[in-house]
């Protein structure tokens, strides 16, 4: 397999420098860099990267607008870099088409883990009709969920919610995205429904619902199914 190609769009040269060296030496990726949105768009178009890392605070343009532009023609995973306390920006970026986010400051191992998760997800998209995590097996063709071999009864909404999370697999899904998938567009503003069903799902699928291992909460942003 050819080495994967990654594009990083970030205005700070030090961050760019350490991400570049870490990805090249530890991840074995081919890395391209851009310091602003205009250059980033050109690079994305010409280098055809397999994954993009985009900073939200770019000097010439809002990172979210860049994501929206790229999403018009590319489905490659996008990881967003942002500061803490910017939940709205994260949500906006995810709604615009980003797949994951990473709050600054972040460490190299964390970044690598996220990148790998994204690549696994894109690989899974072409995968089989059953999906497993922990001792849970979801048979997507027969709509059957089994935990340690025993069937678990899920309501239609619970099931739709679970499937939406599985399809996202490792991707952070915002409240709005989940509501829209599981309930339909009219319910997008009633996020507390989501919390109630997530609680029920965790009780049915997690060992300790208060310390979940798979159905993770991204506070203020949404939910994610851990790979």
């Amino acid at each position: 397999m050819n080495p994967r190609r990654i594009l990083i769009v970030e205005d700070d040269p030090h961050i760019r420098r350490f991400v570049l060296s870490a990805l090249e030496t530890e991840g074995g990726f081919i890395v391209f860099e851009a310091a602003d949105a205009a250059r980033g768009l050109t690079e994305a178009g010409t280098r055809k990267p397999d994954l993009m890392i985009i900073d939200l605070g770019l000097p010439d343009r809002d990172g979210r607008a860049l994501i929206a532009d790229i999403r018009k023609w590319s489905s490659a995973p996008i990881i967003v870099l942002s500061a803490r306390n910017q939940e709205e920006q994260k949500v906006a970026a995810l709604d615009a088409g980003a797949d994951d986010y990473l709050a600054k400051p972040f460490g190299v191992p964390e970044l690598l883990a996220r990148i790998r998760a994204q690549f696994r997800r894109t690989a899974f998209d072409t995968g089989g009709p059953a999906y497993c995590f922990g001792d849970i097996v979801v048979d997507l063709t027969h709509r059957v969920v089994k935990r340690a071999g025993a069937a678990v009864h899920l309501t239609p909404i619970e099931y739709r919610l679970l499937v939406t999370l599985i399809r996202g697999h490792g991707r952070v899904l915002t409240h709005r995205q989940l509501m829209q998938e599981a309930w339909g567009p009219n319910y997008a503003e009633r996020a507390h429904y989501l919390r109630i069903y997530m609680r029920q799902l965790r009780r049915k699928l997690e060992d300790d619902p208060t310390q979940p291992k798979y159905l993770l909460t991204e506070t203020g942003v949404g939910y994610r199914l851990a790979a």
């Binding site: 996020a191 507390h192 919390r195 997530m198 300790d208």
Partner: peptide
Amino acid sequence: DWHAIEEVVGSALRQMAEPLAQHHVVT
């Protein structure tokens, strides 16, 4: 908004997983 407290407890514990690695956590 209306939230479940265990969700927030869960995500806070996950965030603090590293410093609390040597501690025994009970919820």
